[in-house]
Amino acid sequence: MPLGTLDRSAPTLFKQGPSPLARLALYSALALFLMVADTRFRVTEPLRQAMATVLYPLQWLALQPVELAGKGAGYFQSLQAAQQGADEARRQMAVLSVRAGESEQLLRENAELRKLLDLRERLTTPAQAAQVIYDTADPYTRRVMLDRGQLAGVEPGAPVMDASGVLGQVTRVFPMLSEVTLLIDRDQAIPVLNLRTGARSVAYGDPAGGQGGGMELRFTPAAADVKEGDLLTTSGVDGLYPAGLPVARVVRVERRADSAFARIYCAPVAQMDGARHVMVLKPVVADLPERPEPTPAAPRRGGRK
């Protein structure tokens, strides 16, 4: 018998129960009934709650990887945001620190300028303002450079002051700049007057004295009336410095039995290391009358032949 003629249907003995079409209709009607009953009477609510309670651990386990991934992403994002915030805070702190430093510097400069303006009103000698731009590179001298030169009318030998007292003297003049030798330079000397006693002397620079440099009164007798705290001013006998300008204050007096002279150390009243704004005075010698020419000696009469 050919294979195509075989009957593959189930025998009548195994055909039991309703037909598939009847089962489909029954299940569809049951489903419809349950949906209507659930909508109207909520008959499946307890069953749904029971199933949700039973399935909650499985749902929790299934959601853990998603939550861990979300928390990890949030952690890294928050960490990056925190780092960016910290960097921005440090940058702002640096900016505020710079601004605070600039504000303090401006306040200090304003105070110096006010003192210079007050000093200029009290000075009778012509003066002009200048600014210290840098110190010279020579480690064996104490000199600074000003931003005023020959074109601004600065003359060699002109006295230079800050708001407190005499700072130094112009020793070299360039077209746009000028060099000032400070009073504490080893080669600098200035005639001074003891304001308490009226005694005149000469103060020399002492780079090794004090903190950053000082001055010394040389060739002063050991019995001279000099005390600590005496204020020394310019005497005006040199023809360069106007009289009465503060120069230094005596800080230590040493008298030795084996020496006829006393060692007198002084501290300049001007700010030698941090002066920024100064006044350049006109040398007094420019206002002094010219020295008269010596008159020739008259011939003697009745001299020996």
Rank of each mutant, 00 (worst) to 15 (best):
L193E: 04
L193S: 07
L193R: 04
N194T: 07
N194R: 10
L195R: 01
L195K: 09
L195Q: 01
L195H: 07
L195T: 00
L195C: 14
R196M: 04
R196S: 03
R196E: 11
R196N: 02
R196C: 04
R196A: 09
T197L: 15
T197A: 15
T197W: 08
T197Y: 13
T197D: 06
G198W: 14
G198Q: 12
G198A: 14
G198V: 14
G198N: 00
A199D: 08
A199T: 03
A199H: 07
R200P: 10
R200D: 07
R200T: 04
S201G: 10
S201W: 12
S201Q: 12
S201I: 08
S201R: 08
V202L: 05
A203W: 11
A203H: 02
A203T: 03
A203M: 05
A203S: 11
A203G: 08
Y204P: 01
G205M: 15
G205H: 02
G205P: 12
D206N: 10
P207H: 11
P207M: 02
P207D: 08
P207S: 04
A208K: 13
A208E: 15
A208R: 01
G209N: 13
G210D: 02
G210N: 12
G212L: 07
G212N: 08
G212I: 09
G213A: 03
G213P: 10
G213M: 02
G213R: 00
G213H: 00
G214T: 02
G214K: 03
M215R: 05
M215Q: 01
M215D: 09
E216W: 10
E216R: 06
E216S: 03
L217A: 01
L217T: 06
L217Y: 11
L217I: 05
R218I: 01
R218K: 15
R218V: 00
R218Y: 09
F219C: 00
F219H: 15
F219D: 15
F219A: 11
T220I: 03
T220E: 15
T220Q: 12
T220W: 09
T220F: 10
P221G: 13
P221T: 04
A222E: 15
A222P: 07
A222G: 14
A222Q: 14
A223K: 04
A223F: 10
A223Q: 15
A223G: 08
A224F: 05
A224M: 09
A224G: 03
A224R: 14
A224W: 07
A224I: 00
D225Y: 11
D225V: 08
D225T: 13
D225G: 13
D225M: 13
D225A: 09
V226R: 15
V226E: 01
V226P: 02
K227P: 02
K227I: 02
K227M: 04
E228I: 01
E228H: 07
E228W: 05
E228C: 09
E228F: 10
E228G: 04
